[in-house]
Amino acid sequence: MTALPLALTMGEPAGIGAEITCKAWQALRTSGPAFLFLGDPEALQGIPTRRIEAPEEAVGVFQQALPVLTQRLPSPPCLGHPDPANAGAVIGSIRTAVQHALDGRIAGVVTNPIQKSVLTAAGFQHPGHTEFLGELAGTGQPPVMLLACPGLRVVPVTVHMALAAAARSLTTAMILDQGRVVAAALRRDFGIARPRIAIAGLNPHAGEAGTMGREDIEVVAPAIAALVHEGIDARGPLPADTMFTPRARASYDCALCMYHDQALIPVKTLDMDGGVNVTLGLRIVRTSPDHGTALDIAGKGQAEAGSLIAALRLAAEIAQSRARSTP
Rank of each mutant, 00 (worst) to 15 (best):
M10F: 10
G11T: 13
G17V: 14
A18G: 02
C22S: 14
C22Y: 02
C22H: 04
K23S: 06
A27H: 09
A27W: 06
A27K: 12
L28A: 03
G39C: 11
G39S: 10
I47S: 07
I52D: 00
E53N: 14
A54K: 14
V59W: 08
G60W: 08
A65N: 07
L66A: 05
L69T: 03
P74E: 02
P76W: 13
P77T: 12
A87T: 15
V90R: 08
I91Y: 05
L102Y: 07
L102N: 07
I106Y: 00
I106Q: 02
V110Y: 04
N112F: 07
V118A: 15
L119E: 01
T120S: 12
Q125P: 00
G128V: 14
G128W: 08
H129P: 00
L133K: 10
T139W: 00
G140T: 13
C149D: 00
C149M: 09
L152F: 08
R153G: 04
V154S: 02
M161K: 07
A162F: 09
A173S: 07
M174G: 05
D177K: 15
D177C: 06
R180Q: 13
A185P: 04
A185T: 07
L186Y: 05
R187L: 07
D189M: 11
I192V: 15
R194K: 13
R194P: 00
P195K: 09
G201Q: 06
N203G: 01
H205S: 03
H205F: 08
G207F: 11
A209C: 01
G210T: 07
G213F: 10
G231C: 03
G231K: 15
D233R: 14
D233L: 11
F244R: 08
R247M: 07
S251E: 15
L256S: 02
L256C: 05
C257Y: 04
Y259S: 04
Y259Q: 02
D261I: 12
Q262C: 01
L264A: 04
I265M: 12
G275R: 11
V278R: 05
R283Q: 14
V285K: 08
P289A: 09
A298L: 10
A298I: 13
A298K: 10
G301Y: 09
L314P: 01
